[in-house]
Nucleic acid binder design. Structure first.
Ligand code: MN
Ligand code: MN
Ligand code: MN
Ligand code: MN
Lengths: 221, 221
DNA sequence: ATGCCGTGTTAGAGTTGTCTAACAAAAGAA
DNA sequence: TTCTTTTGTTAGACAACTCTAACACGGCAT
């Protein structure tokens, strides 16, 4: 059985190694993500290696073993199910769920997660649009495109966010946008690659390229 | 902020000191309840004393400060709300809720508990019939009498259990009894103080005095 | 009052995790 | 290639627990 800390390190490592350019992930990135010093991350890498979750030799990049990957996916499953619960049943806002799920994910009970999944109706995506792995670690592939790449005139639906920071989520909230919101790209301004959008409430908004690079969408029609 | 372990020690101490004959509770009882050695309980008593939750001088019985009592009641609130959630929403059996609630109770989030309480409809009692403290630490007084003291001919409703051990809860289950079950005392056998009962399903059962001393009831009619 | 036994306390060591400070290796620039 | 910067590793200390083993206190019986 893994400790809460071992689980958190493993999960962060999974995200670092699975995200784009994940091959460059090492001790320092791991430490930074977890807000600890590199010395701490280094000693945890050794411990995870002892437990056969990570393959690690000094001065080379760590990789997850199949066991490590499977274990991380189960933790991600728990995290996203709890986020969904908080959002759907307990009136938590979009940007409030993560912090609490970060604690709830460590509760050890097979039955708890099974029953929570059933209670929520076997959701496929969490409130941020991220796919929820099933008990076998399989998850839906989210078909998405970046909003930044959509041509004017195209209607789209928001399917996820690349960034789940509070600042970003609250900005989205202020625009009246959420997962599943539909919007229309009105204009593309070549100077700075910003976009003019028609929002669900009928208003229009001008958003930066940086914004548009953080929103995943599905083309409609 | 208290650690998970500090919270658990505090809660057990509260139950030891609040239960009948709670004045006799000391280092050894505390250690036994928590399944640790007396040396460990002793050092935790010092730490809780440092944090002004317990008044403690060596070789004398510890008592809770008002702050310690209030803190313990909030933990008990969280525990019983989670038990209620697991029982009512996630199909957990009566004797399965405690172990998981023992973990969930340590999740730190005011909003989580507020919203959970609302989601459950502000329940006054947990699945074992134990009262749930409100945010101020107040709880309903459960009017109860021991089944052992009920005279033949009296109809009663089960309002709680003095013992929440798995063995006891499963015996109750096997008899078809649960919280709120109604039953009729048919006969009192003076020889061993056992009772004959009419059960909800129409059958009768013979139960020992020990059993009858662990069930709280309300007289009906 | 003395002695015994159960209760309670301390010292000292181990585990899991953290940090700082010093150092070693690898990568990049000149 | 040689220097410099970034990245990674180690040693050693500390905190929050845990334990075992030795010891002190206090209540009770003779
Ligand atoms: Mn976490
Ligand atoms: Mn999420
Ligand atoms: Mn607990
Ligand atoms: Mn209970």
């Amino acid at each position: 059985m893994l400790s809460k800390n071992e689980e958190d390190y493993l999960k962060v490592l999974f995200h670092l190694l699975t995200g784009e350019g994940g091959d460059r992930a090492g001790t320092n990135q791991l430490a930074q993500q977890l807000e600890v010093k590199p010395a701490s991350a280094n000693s945890m890498l050794k411990r995870l290696s002892e437990k056969k979750l990570v393959e690690y030799q000094k001065y080379s990049k760590p990789i997850l073993t199949p066991l490590g990957r499977a274990t991380a996916l189960q933790l991600i499953r728990r995290h996203r199910l709890w986020e969904t619960f908080l959002f759907q049943k307990l009136n938590f806002a979009w940007d409030e769920v993560h912090e609490v799920a970060e604690q709830l994910e460590h509760v050890q009970s097979e039955k708890l997660i099974e029953q929570l999944d059933r209670f929520l109706g076997y959701p496929k995506f969490d409130p941020h649009g991220d796919p929820i792995p099933d008990a076998q670690g399989n998850m839906a592939v989210r078909e998405y495109e970046l909003l930044a790449n959509i041509a004017p005139g195209q209607r789209v639906r928001i399917t996820g966010m690349k960034d789940s920071s509070t600042a970003f989520l609250q900005y989205l909230n202020d625009l009246g946008l959420a997962l599943h919101s539909e919007l229309l790209v009105l204009e593309h301004i070549p100077f700075d690659n910003s976009l003019r959008l028609a929002l669900p409430d009928g208003l229009t908004a001008q958003v930066s390229e940086k914004f548009a690079l953080h929103v995943f969408v599905l083309r409609l029609d």
